[in-house]
């Protein structure tokens, strides 16, 4: 049943370790060749946002095995909180061309939105999921759906059912030239932000005490509890981080697209969730990879005029992929979870 192959020789192990980075590089090279640089940048940017949302899905699943259907809507709320902070509290109206001012505004925006969303995520966990910790597995799935309805409709009530504009602080005119193509700095900013946050998350999970507690809890909650890990606190921190990342994704979404709507969470949530599964649900690096992969598929479909089939292609890919690699890109054997 184990899917990971064991190689005995050192050379084999080295090759095994390099296989993933090498295949990612090969894939990126191929994508660049097929799509051209413009579409490549589009895909990387979209993938960066999917990846940030997918991280929240995968972290929550990893630790409490809950498909958190409300997470897409947490991302949506994040985009509205960012919009509100940016336009109402900070009084931004459009691009800021003064670099120090821009940096300060963007940093404040990130800090505030991430904090608010982290608190909201923890609150949702406390009210809707924690009481069901020992309940049948599907019970929290249903409360997640309920939370999703509540979030969507509360936002709709306050901000209306239409598309809402968000100030695009980074001027879209700023760009660099890469082999004859104009690459906007905004796209690079989105990709960089996402990568920085992902690396920070990896470091946090692998280097800190809390990160270790999260990992042990996801492996065996009861055993870690016996080892002195505060389970409730660890799960709450997971929600804090996952929702904070969704908040960051909300900020990035607003800066990049300049708009948001209360229905944003459903589709992007579904895509991000698919990304998490493609990557191997529960595995943070996998979720990021999955996010980029889906973005490339979607952008590719749209670039060649098959946009209307984008969703079908993504999900067919998912089905086929799971049939041949049941634990996703980077997932390990999941055991008997069901």
């Amino acid at each position: 049943m184990a899917t990971a192959s064991v190689t005995s020789s050192t050379a084999g192990r080295l090759l095994g370790n390099l296989r993933l980075p090498l295949s990612i590089l090969a894939f990126l090279g191929l994508a660049l060749g097929v799509l051209g640089i413009d579409q490549f940048v589009n895909a990387m940017t979209l993938g960066a946002i999917y990846a940030l949302v997918a991280l929240g899905y995968t972290m929550v699943y990893g630790i409490i095995e809950l498909i958190n259907f409300a997470h897409g809507d947490v991302f949506m709320v994040g985009s509205f909180v960012a919009m509100f902070i940016s336009s109402s509290l900070l009084g931004n109206e459009g691009a800021i061309t003064n670099v120090p001012m821009l940096a300060a505004s963007v940093l404040i925006l990130f800090a505030l939105t991430i904090s608010v969303m982290a608190l909201l995520g923890a609150l949702i966990e406390r009210l809707a999921y924690r009481p069901l910790r020992r309940a049948p597995k599907l019970a929290p799935l249903i409360t997640a759906i309920g939370v999703s309805f509540i979030l969507q409709n509360v936002i709709q009530f306050f901000f209306g059912p239409t598309i809402v504009t968000v100030p695009q602080l980074v001027p879209i005119e700023w760009s660099i030239q890469v082999s004859g193509s104009r690459v906007p700095l905004l796209n690079l900013f989105v990709i960089a932000t996402s990568v920085i946050l992902m690396v920070a998350l990896q470091l946090f999970i692998s280097r800190t005490r809390t990160g270790r507690a999260m990992r042990t809890t996801s492996m065996d909650r009861d055993a870690s509890s016996l080892m002195g890990v505060d389970i409730n606190r660890t799960i709450m921190i997971t929600f804090l981080i996952g929702s904070g990342l969704a908040g960051a994704a909300g900020v990035v979404h607003g800066l990049y697209y300049g708009n948001t709507t209360f229905g944003l969470g459903f589709q992007s949530g579904l895509k991000a969730f698919t990304a998490a599964v493609l990557g191997g649900i529960g595995n943070t690096a996998g979720a990021a990879l999955g996010g980029f992969l889906i973005a490339f598929v979607e952008v590719g479909a749209s670039a060649f005029g098959y946009g209307r089939w984008g969703g079908a292609i993504v999900f067919s890919l998912l089905v086929i992929f799971l049939v041949f690699r049941p634990t996703g890109l980077l997932g390990s054997h999941t055991g008997d979870r069901a």
Binding site: Y61, E65, I67, F273, T274, V277, I281, L318, V319, L322, V323, P326, T327, G328, T334, G335, D336, R337, A338
Partner: peptide
């Protein structure tokens, strides 16, 4: 043959 939640996603 997929287990648990992977089947759900499929």
């Amino acid at each position: 043959r997929l287990r648990g939640d992977y089947l759900a996603i499929v």
